[in-house]
Nucleic acid binder design. Structure first.
Lengths: 231, 231
DNA sequence: ACCTGAACACCGTTCAAGT
DNA sequence: ACCTGAACACCGTTCAAGT
């Protein structure tokens, strides 16, 4: 395959990051190497290192750009709906860019001072505040929500990447269901019993159900029912 | 460093997996290579490939062994306490073996028919059932719990691995808190406001608080209050 | 059946040399 | 200042050859 880019414009950090995102989207984390990247950009490895310190920084920049775009959610509406919208925005972003999952986990912990962590934290936390969660509980509550959202979305991204490539989603779930039904009845009574529920389930619905479960928990623990306030 | 093992016994799959776990625990995911492994076992690469198909299978086996050990939790007690105990068991296992985090995410999705997924699912799900969650909601509820637990534990494992190596936990949290306090007041009012709460927080406590939040949500949504049942 | 270890096709990164 | 591209020190995996 001939290089897509003929180097009309000069190289720049932005163009490098852009190409990296394209490679990641097209061929996954393994598809981004300095070889594929130099080929795509019609340049040499050293040229890339002139603009970017190392592969980690490249991945950070790629993540930041995509997440910033994903978090531009309409600001208005009830806090609960806002949280659902932000959650879905992240879910969809991770589904379309499965390489985000790994990246988010490592950036949230490795560099919480970077821009990605505050961005996500702010988008959720602001609405947790608006929900009425009292001071002193906002950090923990927001952390729990962010953890669930990124954990679930990440799990889902792994689902998307993996699996036998040509097997449809339905076939995959069918295989899991079958495998669970054949587990030892003494050791795995529960897993066997819910095996059938695996078959039809919708990942996105299940994700939202989880968000609602956490929201219900927040309501129950931190927002004692008052007359005139809807559940 | 001289090889620790002098090859007194014959090579076996078990000994290889055992050595892999030791290397992973000692030097992290990057520390396990076929070079370090052959050195440790005083053998050649081909010998390992005779017992194990590839590196992925090696990581699977390592994960399975450690998780099975971590899930041997006392069976009795109230379901809620059982869930907390299982959750903490997984949390601690991942904290002691941070490489588990990545591994669990990929195994839960890539091979839900493997032994790891059913093991975790069964340990939590059985107690979700005992809690009284009605049929038709057990799969989704258990998924949400497992997602939160593995997501939080995984995030924590990343914390453990990363950070400037010599910085103490307190110093690290202090740096994060400071960085958050310096964010733009217009863009990050919430994050700035909770920056102080980062400083003192205990990860384990916060993890458990999250589990309790999900449990409260399950109670609120699926276990309508009845006279004679304690919250 | 089980093991050896050189060889292969990759990585990320560096760096003298060019313009 | 910006870029080239060969070279370095690694990877995981294979495979003819040994016992």
């Amino acid at each position: 395959m001939a290089p897509r880019t003929r180097r009309t414009e000069a190289l720049s950090r932005d163009r490098i990051v852009e190409a990296a995102v394209e490679l990641l989207d097209t061929s996954g984390e393994a598809g981004l190497t300095f070889r594929t990247l130099t080929e795509r950009l019609a340049t040499g490895a050293g040229a890339i290192y002139w603009h970017v310190a190392n592969k980690g920084e490249l991945l950070e920049a790629a993540t930041d750009g995509v997440i910033a775009a994903a978090l531009t959610v309409e600001p208005a509406g009830a806090p609960r709906d806002g949280i659902r919208a932000v959650a879905l925005g992240l879910y969809d972003a991770i589904e379309h860019h499965p390489w985000l999952a790994t990246q988010l986990t490592s950036q949230l912990s490795r560099s919480p001072w970077g821009s990605v962590t505050p961005r996500i934290f702010e988008a959720i936390g602001r609405r947790v505040h608006a929900l009425g969660v009292p001071e002193g509980h906002r950090f923990t509550t927001t952390s729990a929500l962010v953890t669930y959202i990124l954990g679930a979305a990440g799990q889902n991204a792994a689902n998307a990447t993996s699996a036998v490539p040509h097997a449809s989603r339905a076939e995959f779930l069918d295989a899991v269901s079958k495998a669970w039904e054949e587990l030892d009845p003494d050791d795995y009574p529960f897993t066997r019993a819910v095996a059938a529920e695996v078959r039809g389930h919708d990942d996105r619905e299940q994700f939202l159900a989880g968000v609602d479960l956490v929201l219900a928990g927040i309501t129950a623990v931190h927002l004692p029912a008052r007359p005139g306030r809807a559940g």
